[in-house]
Design a protein around this nucleic acid. Structure first.
Lengths: 150, 150
DNA sequence: TTAGATACGTTACTCTGTATCTATTCACCG
DNA sequence: CGGTGAATAGATACAGAGTAACGTATCTAA
């Protein structure tokens, strides 16, 4: 099987899982939302909101930014998509939701490529640091800049 | 000694340390840069760039945004200020630069208050996670959202 | 089937940050 | 000193990111 077919299959897996997740939680994965998610899946990396506007607009019909933002908000609430604040961009969330793990998004400073890693050790260390600071950690998500080791 | 006086003293300490740091590294802490830094110190928390524009502008002289951004860039390069990407704001960097520690900025989701904590454990755990992902961690700084434990 | 909630369209706007070009100031060297 | 190149700052304009407000359509449940 070609790598292209493999990727295609991987994409469909993600789509199906998103669909299931929404069905189970009584969320509506409407056409627009699905198109936004699909575009993010196919891109294979972070994409800016206005880039999504361009990609999902056709000659005859130009989408308004707010339409994309609303879809992104939905997908984020559903846990399907992360926002990369440092890059002003959005990227699909891989990995199964392990409540005890910190979701770390490593972002390549140069290329913008990302890899998501889940780590209970980091989660624990951060939890400790937070406690020491009088904070309760809430977000199980963080970004760290770095670079791909070649 | 009143708490107000204490804070005043703390402010002056920070200013002096910033001054020293620049002198030692042959960096020029010009009047604008110093005013921006001072404003951040006095505010005691994160401040937006345009907020700084307002605060440092007078009736007669309105500063251009780019002026503030340039000062902020300088202060960030010098390690005196952090940018909070999640908040689009800027905050002074506390703590002495320990190369082996991760600088974690806990940001209160509600109020925007921040506390900076340095942790070698988190640094180590992140380093491991990065390695596992084929990444070299570069940035010793990260943001984590949470809330103050009252 | 009708009321309420959810989702989408449209317009306009605010906030954040940068490009570009010019003027000034600084530091160093002859 | 005076001049020359680099760093700094001013001015204008613009690009990019995100939201407010309001109306319309669609879905869902009583």
């Amino acid at each position: 099987m070609s790598t292209k077919a493999l990727r295609k299959e991987e994409e469909e897996n993600l789509l199906r899982r998103a669909d299931d997740l929404c069905r189970q939680n009584n969320l509506r994965l409407t056409p627009i939302r699905e198109r936004v998610y699909r575009e993010l899946v196919q891109s294979g990396g972070p994409v800016g909101a206005y880039d999504l506007v361009d990609r999902l607009s056709s000659e005859k019909k130009r989408l308004a930014p707010v339409t994309i933002y609303r879809a992104l908000d939905f997908l984020r609430d559903a846990g399907l998509v992360h926002r990369l604040a440092t890059q002003n961009s959005y990227v699909i969330s891989h990995g199964q939701p392990d409540v005890n793990a910190m979701k770390i998004m490593f972002v390549d400073s140069k290329t913008g490529e990302t890899i998501e890693v889940h780590s209970t050790e980091v989660a624990e260390a951060v939890r400790k640091a937070a406690e020491q600071a009088g904070f309760k950690t809430v977000s199980p998500f963080m970004e760290v800049e770095g670079e791909i080791a070649h």
